[in-house]
Amino acid sequence: MSTNPKVELTLPVMENMELAATKTAEVVAKSMGLDEMKTAEINMALIEACINAFEHSKSKENIYITYSIDGDTLTIKVGDKGEGFDSEVVAIPNIDEKINSEHKRGWGLQLMKELMDTVEFESSEAGTTVTMTKNK
């Protein structure tokens, strides 16, 4: 394997296309020897990142994903060219508040943070990139 291998994927905004991202993640995770649970956590976080990119970006352009392996760390970046958002103002969801609320969604960021080792957002009017890492 080459040093710090990187895989790049471009996805159109199409229903269930996030599953294509998980298929690639599975291959990358397997090459690193990540266990089944960590691979499933990566997949779940990646699904949420892709859905956010598809939906919240209000963009019909492609989204871009890179998977980079650096030793025992997998770094995944999911980028879109949407309007951007401020992750700091996104409320932490709470099931007690969601019940009897009109807005039951909004769990994606919380799931990503819980399932990955680190999650960072860079957002501007030109788009958003979420960078997530998972250690072996």
Binding site: E18, L19, N43, E48, I51, I99, N100, R105, W107, L111
Partner: peptide
């Protein structure tokens, strides 16, 4: 069902409610 997303699960909250 070995894969879900938060949108699908959040819709189930309606049933709980």
């Amino acid at each position: 069902t070995d894969m879900v997303n938060s949108i699908g699960v959040s819709i189930l909250i309606e049933v709980i409610e």
